[in-house]
Design a protein around this nucleic acid. Structure first.
Lengths: 333, 333
DNA sequence: TCTCTTTTTGCAAACGCTTGCAAACTAGTT
DNA sequence: AACTAGTTTGCAAGCGTTTGCAAAAAGAGA
């Protein structure tokens, strides 16, 4: 590691004070164009590159944001991350990536590490709803934070309109004539999924929907679908999956059972991950604006950085993406 | 932003010097257990959190690594990123995510930004082979760097064994009796893909393979497959795609043409992204250890950080994943 | 009790930058 | 020529740590 070139070197070389160099470099007002150019030339010649950590120490701003999600491999988060990164970049910030793997301890470790780094803000899709102690810790840290996929709480939030999505799903399925449907979703009490579920059930006629809770994954969807398909207490004409990943599992189970989508059974997803358009048949789903979620979240975060900015709660609209996995219900019964 | 608690506060409170606090906190040798405990207690009580940027300034180590890839949404990179993040975390480092979108300028901007942040190392999947000037700039920066998906060059590299993969593909297809095949891949002169292509063509009998170059994407695969399927100068029994993403596009085109995989035509991918096992039929492919690639890369990076560490070149083995998209060739002609 | 080691602590100088304040100029008025 | 009002610069004090070195304290051996 060769010696680092500092503004001192430039100052010496250009025959001015370091403060003048600093001001020239930052384009501050009050430096004669002549001097500035000379300084800039020297800086260029010496191949100078500002040391942001030193600058950060004095300014107190690190121009770094933290993104804590459960797993970047979840396509939804991939998209969120991309939106966040783009927005961060636009604002001259870097984004550090943290995978919590749904582990609350790990999540809080990351928060602590990011705080130690004095990031300008934290973007987090919290593992679970925060308990009182965690909330206090977060507030004590005093770093702007915005929570993804949350709607309430003392912190700023950015979330898709899951309730509207649930309702949308119900309306669509009803319009197609489905009166006996199953909703296969993740664990109960999972913020997002629960909102979808509640709104969906509420918008459907009483007794028309069977809800199954399982693992929030491809395998989970497959399993749930298998049990629904196997023990058939009632003939089901459509399945609404809690999200696309579950839907893919369901699809696999249906195909494995030698049934056809949508001829034998309709399938509706949620999220609109890219894969949905690749799979056969292309999946009809509720689009969640994941990229915009990430984007909006960092924009909010940046605003929170300003003095006395109030918490913001954003709810982004969802949208039905009609592809080929849903068809009108046929009265086979 | 309330006032930050510093070691000075602790020092005052505990009645010792800041250096003692620093040493206590870092568990240095030469502090009486008694004192240390007292300091630790005060730190705890004051809810102290070390300022890593200050520390970084004096130690010269930021415990941050940069990851520059073209797009995190590419599932291959998602996996690489995950491997990298896990390895970084294990080493007590953070990872900042940079999407270059295949833009060389943007890539170099990121390098500069990361350098300004004084990251401990950069992990990069370079957009293109580096020209002389870029190489010099990278070297001048003096930050450890490891290149992903490269095998040669003055820098350390981590790469899957693409040549072996190409050969493997050829051997497998030959074993199944395919003698007229197409290789649909990305742009010519794309490091990775080119290696695969060359090895594949070389291992196949002369004149048995038609190579098509197109866009490296789902759409690209679809298009190339359409032209192969449409104008059929010769009957093809199998397609080897440059990677899984292309393969998915090919699959879609085949399905759209009312042909069956593998009955009418066999399809072989490369990469082994998760989606491959979800798609119908499950895709036979060459597994590239993406997670390990990321992991290995940061491990290498960390080693480079040590004094006088020599450059390393790693080639990771690939592996055939046999699923259901390939079948023995039938002599339809 | 008095040296001689060995620990344990404190002092002070970095690390590379920003920034408030005052000094030194420059130009504009009178 | 003197005075005022800028404008351009330099001085020096930080930002919160770490760390080499020396001072102080504590044991140990006599």
């Amino acid at each position: 590691m060769q010696k680092e070139i500092t503004i001192k070197d430039i100052a010496r070389e250009a025959g001015v004070d370091v403060s003048t160099v600093s001001r020239s470099l930052s384009g501050a007002y009050g430096i004669k164009a002549d001097t500035r150019n000379r300084v800039l030339a020297v800086a260029q010649r010496l191949n100078y590159r500002v040391n942001r950590v030193a600058r950060g120490l004095v300014t107190g701003r690190s121009h770094t944001l933290g993104l804590i999600i459960s797993d970047i491999r979840n396509p939804f988060f991939t998209e969120v991350a991309r939106g966040a990164e783009d927005a961060a970049r636009a604002a001259g910030c870097d984004l550090v990536l943290c995978n919590s793997d749904q582990d609350a301890t790990r999540q809080m470790e990351y928060v602590a590490a990011l705080a130690g780094k004095r990031v300008d803000g934290i973007l987090m899709n919290s593992v679970a709803v925060l308990d009182k102690e965690q909330k206090e810790r977060l507030e004590a840290i005093g770093i702007p934070i915005v929570l993804l996929n949350r709607t309430r709480g003392p912190f700023s939030t950015v979330c898709a309109d899951n309730k509207a999505g649930g309702t949308l799903a119900a309306e669509y399925l009803l319009k197609l004539g489905h009166r006996k449907v199953a909703h296969l979703t993740g664990p109960a009490r999972h913020g997002n999924l629960t909102d979808r579920e509640k709104a969906f059930v509420k918008a459907m006629p009483p007794d028309s929907v069977t809800v199954l809770h399982g693992e929030n994954s491809f395998a989970g969807g497959r399993e749930m679908a298998q049990t629904v398909l196997a023990g058939q207490p009632r003939r089901i004409t459509a399945i609404f999956a809690g999200n696309d990943t579950i839907a893919f599992g369901v699809l696999r189970a249906i195909l494995d059972a030698n049934l056809k989508v949508p001829d034998d059974i309709s399938l509706l997803g949620f999220d609109n991950v890219e894969l949905g358009s690749i799979v056969q048949p292309p999946l009809t789903t509720i689009h969640q604006p994941s990229y915009e979620l990430g984007q909006r979240a960092v924009e909010t975060l940046l605003r929170l950085g300003k003095k006395d900015a109030p918490a913001e709660n954003h709810v982004l609209p969802v949208q039905l993406i009609e592809r080929q996995s849903c068809a009108p219900a046929t009265q086979k019964i």
